[in-house]
Design a protein around this nucleic acid. Structure first.
Lengths: 154, 154
DNA sequence: TTCCACAAGATGACATGTCATCCAAAAGGC
DNA sequence: GCCTTTTGGATGACATGTCATCTTGTGGAA
C-alpha cells in the first residue's frame, strides 16, 4: 500500500459535517416518525414501495432491488411487519420458490396516516433549510457518489 | 394541521438521491472497515475521540456530547468495547458518580492500524467522486441543516 | 443541616441489522 | 433426461440501537 492520502482541512470539515448531519437527521426523523405513527423509517419505506406497486403487491426480490437492502434484512423485516399485521405474504404461482408481499388494509391505513406528518418533518428539518441551488447541488453530488458506489469494480 | 406541503419533483429527486447515497455509503464503509480491521464505524469513532483526548482519557458524558450519541447507546457500546479489550474504565475521583474511559494499548493499536485504509476508502468512495466546489457546497449545506436540527425549539 | 431536583451512568427488554448458512425450485449444459 | 449452478427466500446467532427505568452522587434552596 502506498502512502495514505489523508484528508486536507476542507475535506475533513466537509466530511465531518456530513457525517454528523447524516446521523442526527436520521435519528431525528426516525424518532419523530416512530412517535407520531408507530412506524420506523424502514417500515415506512417498505410501505411506500408497496403502495406504489400495482395491486399493492410485490415479490420480495423486487422490493429488495428497489430498497437496496440486504436480502436477509428484508426477510427479517417482512417477518416483523407481518407479525404486526402491516403486510401479508402469499404464495407465488409462477415461481414455486417465491412469494408475494402485499399490503394489508391496516398497512395501507398506517402509511396513509403517517405520510403527511413525515413529509412535513422532512421539509422542516431538511428541505426548508436549503435553497433551490443547494437542493440541486445535493442531487448532483449524491448521484456522483452513487455512480461510484454502484460501479462494477469499486 | 394545515395542508401538507408535499415535495415537488426537484425536492423529491434530491431527497431520494440523498437517502439512497447515505444508506449505501454508510453500509459500504462499515462493511469495509469491519472486514479490514474488525472495527465497526461506531468503534472507530469512539477510538478517534479518545485518541484526540489528552491522556487518551475522557468522561463518558464528554464523549457523548462529542459523538452526539444517546447516553444508553454509548454506555452499551463502551461495555462491548471493554469486553473486547479496546478500552478500559476507571473510577473518577472528582465525581464519585462518574467514570473515565481510557484507551488500552490494544485500542490504540487497533485504531492506528485501521485508520489508513479507512481514510483511503472514504477518499475513494466519496471525496474523490466530488470536485472542490462540491466539497465546500456540502459543508455549507450540512451546516445549515445542523443549525436547524440543533436549534433550541425543534 | 435537610430535602429535593437533577446529573452521571448502568441495565434489561426489546427492535433492528449483518453474516453465514440452509433449502427448494428453476435454468442451463451435456 | 441428468447433473450442476443459480436464484428466491428463510433462519439462527450475534452485534447494534432505543426506550424506560434504576442507582447513586451533586448541588442548591429552605
Amino acid at each position: 500500500m502506498s502512502e495514505t492520502r489523508w484528508l486536507d482541512d476542507d475535506e475533513q470539515r466537509a466530511w465531518r459535517a456530513y457525517v454528523r448531519m447524516q446521523g442526527r437527521l436520521g435519528a431525528e426523523l426516525n424518532r419523530r416518525l416512530q412517535a407520531s405513527s408507530g412506524l420506523s423509517l424502514a417500515d415506512y419505506d417498505v410501505l411506500v414501495h408497496l403502495t406504489d406497486a400495482p395491486g399493492g403487491r410485490l415479490r420480495p426480490y423486487e422490493l429488495q432491488r428497489e430498497l437496496h437492502w440486504e436480502q436477509s434484512r428484508l426477510s427479517h423485516h417482512l417477518g416483523r411487519m407481518q407479525k404486526r399485521g402491516l403486510i401479508r405474504r402469499e404464495d407465488c404461482d409462477e415461481d414455486r420458490r417465491g412469494a408475494y408481499v402485499l399490503l394489508t388494509p391496516a398497512g395501507r391505513e398506517a402509511i396513509t396516516e403517517a405520510a403527511p406528518d413525515h413529509v412535513e418533518t422532512v421539509r422542516r428539518l431538511f428541505i426548508d433549510a436549503l435553497d433551490p441551488e443547494q437542493i440541486s447541488a445535493l442531487e448532483r453530488l449524491a448521484d456522483r457518489v452513487l455512480d461510484r458506489l454502484e460501479a462494477p469494480d469499486e
